[in-house]
Amino acid sequence: MTTDGGLRPVPDVLTYLAGRWRVERTVRDLAGGAAGRFAGTTVFSPLTGGGLLHEESGTFTWQGVSRPAERTLRFLPGAVAGTADVRFADGRPFHDLDLTSGRHVADHPCVADLYRGEFTVRDADHWRTVWRVGGPAKDLLLVTDYGRAA
């Protein structure tokens, strides 16, 4: 957090995210009560033509069973300087991202479910996402903490 306990504004989200991050995620099924955990790393590396390639890998444990997990996203320069247009690996739109205030809320409709993400910058080396997923197919809460790796 900033010295006054507030959010940390980020003038350019792509510059802020570039590099390697440690990742800790909890996943809770709010309807059924099951819980899981992901631990791993996320690397934001430069994309040819601008933007960042987000590659996450680690171990996901769900109901006592651990298995490798990974995902890839593309963080492209947004329409407004300092923001990003986040896309799935295949190019489909995911959400926008503007951390100029230190906080951002984004929605992503997925079939009949709605993903609502809140992004919070704590300081130069820590940020958090909280995704609430609701709809007929899912009722989940995903909380992810990122810490910059040395």
Rank of each mutant, 00 (worst) to 15 (best):
A35R: 14
G91H: 11
F94I: 07
G40D: 04
R116C: 06
L73M: 12
R122Y: 03
F88P: 13
T3H: 04
A106G: 08
D29T: 01
G32E: 02
H108M: 11
S66A: 15
R22V: 09
F75K: 09
R103K: 11
G32F: 06
P9H: 00
V10N: 00
F60L: 15
A150N: 05
G40H: 02
A112S: 09
T48D: 05
F44D: 04
A149M: 09
L53I: 13
V130P: 05
T61F: 08
G51W: 01
D123A: 11
L99W: 09
T42M: 11
L47Y: 03
G58S: 12
P77V: 11
E70R: 13
G32L: 08
T100Y: 06
G51T: 02
V130A: 11
T129A: 11
G147S: 08
T59A: 14
V65T: 15
D145W: 06
E56T: 06
R25L: 01
L76S: 14
G5L: 06
F38T: 05
G134M: 09
T15M: 05
A31L: 14
T83P: 13
R8P: 01
G50C: 03
H108C: 10
E56L: 14
T2E: 04
R103N: 02
V65Q: 13
L53S: 00
R132T: 03
P11Y: 03
